[in-house]
Design a binder for these strands. Structure first.
Length: 934
RNA sequence: GCCCUGGUGGUGGAACUGGUAGACACGCAGGACUUAAAAUCCUGUUCGCCGCAACGCGAGUGCGGGUUCAAUUCCCGCCUGGGGCACCA
């Protein structure tokens, strides 16, 4: 009887479906466990072998927990709104809903092939009205709330209005504008429109103006990655910054809670650090500097003082005597006022240059650029005049958009000063060597008047106090994080449930939800940078918002919908969310570190504050799967010919890389590095039909390069093909066997045979290929029990700590040992089958049935590890002399250190290595090793 | 540029808390079975040196230094692959 995996897998997948074995109930007396995958965006390319890595891990863990007696929620769905479907619609005229539904069908088929245990009755699709109705509803909750800094939580906007009516905004300072101040009378006197404008500055979801990448030629707003070197990726048209009305989420109000929350959840330290850096909390001070404008032409020493000061943000007020220049962002409001006649042209040119550059480019390049404004700031302590420059390395969005340049203490300031020949004041003496800035806080200050001799760390507070006394500065906590842009000028997203009446945003009532995404004639952008919805007369006539929500709207709360997916009266019943509570294990890639994972944490906190759910962190534990990279294969065509030379010939120097054109070939017809030439000449409709090959030993060897897995690089491997060839169980185990689940690695199919052989070998413990049934009911020997229980311990520990690759290897060791022992005993094999079920569910169901059991193996009881079967009485100790292992001695485990020393010193080989020298130190680690120092 | 992460045989990787480096698997080499192939099984496989072999010796976890009886593991400096950086999801 052979291992017929195709038949077995088909049978059991059908059986699971017919018997509905993966349906999960919202009520159970078992403990609950919620295991979640980051849901996929259903792209047209379908799944490649990288996608299932995390899904297989979560599937194993779900089945493992189920066997251990948990009620496991393990759902799947689709993040179905997004740009690619819209691009496809623009190019092919296919409605995004149509192409998305088609892509989802493909995904589903591919997922089913691998045998996952999802409860598909709970599937969600973010683009369906039944789902986005609640996305819109949650948006309205955010719109109708503000963040009360006193209570540190979201509260209804009605609370705020009441407070305004009673005492103005005295107890609720405006988060958007700290200088806004009004009394109860002032509030009462305001018009309705003015009131709404004030409230907008408090709302958690609010409308404001922000810069976008605007491409005039395409008439559309572009994403950062659609902009390359200041021009559009498609077409190469110029892109400039443009201010547009935008929706935002006031996530900055949650900055502290998002930081504190990290202490209560299990994310990797790296992930926590990334989020912490993204939030970027810094303690510093805002300092106002007077501005002087030179009068008349050059050489004139008269100055006019400007009424408004230059406000800078610094984390290092202690370095104030080291300020040699000021730098303001190219978007800074003061530029027009402070630029002198002489500098006008230069400043104008510089700003035009900067407008063409993305934030990324501005930060990434080492190139130093800048322009003097002609104006000066005044050091408040010694009256020194400090030139004010403009440079792109200062970003308008952070702090005040202006910094004080301290070249001896900051690397970027230092390069700037050197480049523009600005004299450098050294305030840290020997700590500054004249060639590199030194950001120390430990130096004793010099050239700093009243601060001389004071340690920098201590000077910070002294300066802050002085500045406060003088009324020109105050301590300020800053965050790098900005409010999250929440609108897109696109079609394929959730419409905002907002109407604009006389310039005031009015929410639709709950009964008007969902506000359906309308059909459009064209998916092209609307006028003036508006989205395609602005092209629909009826939409515009109803004064509905023409922006749509971004991709992360639907994904910020989907984990809640899985709990109660068909509820039509609430996004999720409170009783149900109380039962399932937090996601116990969340698996996905690190690429979502600062986007999705921060937004969903914020939404959860807001929903918690408003009393809709009972927990304020969505994911109790996060596991990041590594990225599976592609391993591309190249052939090399001699320039201007049809001759392809084998990579060996280039390696051996017969040809150089300059003589050939490297061409990517599909990895699916390259075996290892050897090209299937017959397949190659038929590839791409015979484009290479006339190919001639020059090679050694009749083998054409391809070159290899590791890059992202992508269709355009011909390096994708489709899981379907591997499942067809080796079976889903082999595929699942091989993906796990590749390496640690959290590590990135290039895909390589060549080891899959080993895993397949393992399953065949397992099968042969139960069935002889000729004689049939082999398993028997005889009682196992001590050696056999030992093999089983060692495996139980190892598998349980490894699965618990997500070390799936070592678990697979432990299964192999177990089966190898049982085969060597010729052990076909049911008492050993049956528990082994249960252990293996999470990893290879199909074959285990089949063997479970073969052993005479009823029902699914998932309802079996997980084997219990018993120590009595694995205890050892002695150990083969490695004995080192001066740290080098020289021999092994078998010693009883309960021997004392004295006994061990005696035995070791008596050993012949040890004697030889001692060379008669005396023992200086004897190190004995029980159960591990012995080391003799001589 | 900034932030994060990795680097161990021909290959993927193992070594969980500083304690025998290379488990398990691929590949390769040799052998058994077979008319042959597939499948299966057995043996060997980090590198260098001596040697018929056994045994043995030395080096070795990206590079250079340090701490320690002992370092793949901890510390400092460097090289290098990958991911992220706010409108891709």
């Amino acid at each position: 009887m052979e291992y017929d995996f195709r038949k077995i897998e088909k049978t059991w997948q059908q059986n699971w479906k017919d018997k509905n074995v993966y349906a999960v109930s919202n009520t159970s007396n078992k403990p609950k466990c919620y295991v979640l995958d980051m849901f996929p965006y259903p792209s047209g390319a379908g799944l490649h072998v990288g996608h299932p890595l995390g899904y297989i891990a979560s599937d194993i863990y779900s089945r493992f927990k189920r066997l251990k007696g948990f009620n496991v929620l393990h759902p799947m769905g689709y993040d179905a709104f997004g740009l690619p479907a819209e691009q496809y619609a623009i190019e092919h005229g296919v409605h995004p809903a149509t192409s998305t539904a088609k892509n989802i069908d493909t995904f589903r088929q591919q997922l089913d092939n691998i045998g996952f245990c999802y409860d598909w009755s709970r599937e969600v699709r973010t683009c369906e009205p039944g789902y986005y109705r609640w996305t819109q509803w949650i948006f309205l909750q955010l719109f109708e709330s503000f963040f009360n800094r006193k209570t540190q939580k979201a509260e209804p906007i009605a609370v705020l209005i009441k407070s305004f009516e009673q005492e103005g905004n005295a107890i609720h300072p405006c988060p958007a504008n700290s200088s806004l101040s009004f009394s109860a009378a002032g509030w009462a006197a305001a018009t309705e429109k003015e009131k709404q404008e004030i409230l907008m500055q408090y709302r958690l979801a609010f409308c404001g103006y922000g810069e976008v990448n605007w491409c005039e030629a395409l008439g559309t707003v572009l994403a950062n990655d659609e902009v390359v070197n200041g021009v559009s990726e498609r077409g190469g048209y110029p892109v400039v910054k443009k201010k547009l009305r935008q929706w935002y989420l006031r996530i900055t109000e949650y900055a502290d809670r998002l930081l504190e929350g990290l202490e209560t959840i299990e994310f990797s330290d790296a992930m926590k650090e990334m989020q912490t850096n993204w939030i970027g909390k810094s303690y510093g001070a805002e300092i106002d500097f007077e501005i002087l404008l030179p009068q008349g032409g050059e050489g004139n020493h008269a100055f006019t003082k400007l009424p408004s000061p230059l406000r800078v943000y610094t984390t290092r007020p202690d370095t104030i005597f080291g300020v040699d220049f000021m730098v303001i962002a190219p978007e800074h409001d003061l530029i027009e006022q402070i630029t002198t006649e002489e500098q006008k042209t230069a400043v104008g040119e510089y700003i035009t240059y900067v407008k063409s550059r993305s934030d990324r480019e501005r930060q990434a390049e080492k190139r130093i650029s800048g322009c003097f404004t002609g104006a000066f700031a005044v050091n408040p302590f010694n009256g020194k005049k400090i030139p004010i420059w403009i440079s792109e390395y200062v970003l308008a969005g952070y702090g005040t958009g202006a910094i004080m340049g301290v070249p001896c203490g900051d690397e970027r300031d230092h390069r700037f000063a050197k480049h523009f020949h600005i004299p450098i004041t050294n305030i840290i003496g020997a700590h500054y060597d004249g060639t590199d800035a030194n950001p120390t806080k430990e130096a004793l200050l010099e050239n700093s008047e009243f601060l001389n001799g004071i340690r920098m760390r201590d000077a910070i507070d002294i300066v802050n106090t002085r500045l406060e006394e003088m009324g020109i500065g105050k301590k300020k906590v800053n965050y790098k994080m900005r409010d999250a842009a929440f609108s897109r000028q696109r079609y394929w997203g959730e419409p905002f449930p907002i109407q604009w009446k006389n310039g005031v945003a009015e929410p639709l009532s709950e009964t008007e939800l969902p506000l359906l995404l309308p059909e459009v004639e064209s998916y092209r952008p609307g006028p003036e940078g508006e989205g395609p919805l602005a092209n629909i007369p009826e939409w515009v006539a109803r004064e509905l918002e023409t922006n749509t929500m971004p991709g992360y709207a639907g994904s910020s709360w989907y984990f809640l919908r899985y709990m109660d997916p068909h509820n039509t009266t609430a996004f999720c019943d409170r009783k149900v969310s109380d039962y399932w509570n937090q996601v116990d294990l969340y698996i996905g890639g690190t690429e979502h570190a600062v986007g999705h994972l921060l937004y969903s944490r914020m939404w959860t906190k807001a929903l918690f504050d408003l009393g809709h759910i009972g927990f304020d962190e969505p994911f109790r534990k996060l596991l990041n799967q590594g990225m599976i990279q592609g391993s591309s294969r190249f052939v090399y065509r001699l320039k201007g010919t049809e001759i392809f030379v084998s990579y060996e010939l280039i390696e051996k120097g017969k040809y150089t890389m300059d003589q050939v054109d490297p061409i990517r070939v599909d990895v699916n017809f390259v075996d290892g590095v050897e090209l299937d030439k017959a397949h190659f000449v038929k590839w791409r409709n015979g484009e290479y039909a006339n190919a001639k090959f020059e090679m050694e030993a009749d083998r054409y060897i391809c070159g290899v390069e590791v890059e992202k897995m992508s269709k355009s690089k011909f390096n994708t491997v489709n899981p379907d093909d591997l499942v067809e060839k080796f079976g889903a169980d082999t595929f699942r185990m091989y993906e796990m066997f590749l390496g640690p689940v959290d590590q990135s690695k290039p895909w390589d199919t060549k080891g899959i045979e080993g895993v397949h052989r393992f399953l065949k070998k397992l099968w042969r413990l139960f069935f002889d290929e000729v004689k049939g049934k082999r398993w028997e009911t005889e009682a196992p020997t001590a050696a056999e029990w030992k093999v089983l229980h060692r495996t139980i311990k190892k598998i349980e520990e490894d699965t618990d700590r997500f070390s799936f690759n070592t678990a697979v290897s432990a299964f192999m060791i177990c089966v190898n040992e049982l085969a060597d022992l010729k052990c076909y005993k049911r008492d050993i094999l049956q528990p082994l089958i249960i252990l293996l079920t999470p990893y290879a569910p199909h074959i285990c169901e089949e063997l479970w049935m073969a052993l005479g059991n009823e029902g699914t193996v998932l309802d079996a009881e997980y084997p219990k590890y018993e120590e009595k079967y694995t205890v050892e009485s002695s150990k083969e100790y490695p004995v080192s002399i001066n740290g080098k292992v020289r021999t092994n001695i078998n010693i009883a485990l309960d021997a004392t250190a004295e006994q061990v020393q005696e035995i070791a010193l008596a050993n012949e080989l040890v004697q030889k290595w001692m060379e008669g020298k005396t023992l200086k130190k004897f190190i004995f680690v029980k159960g591990k090793m012995i080391n003799l120092v001589i």
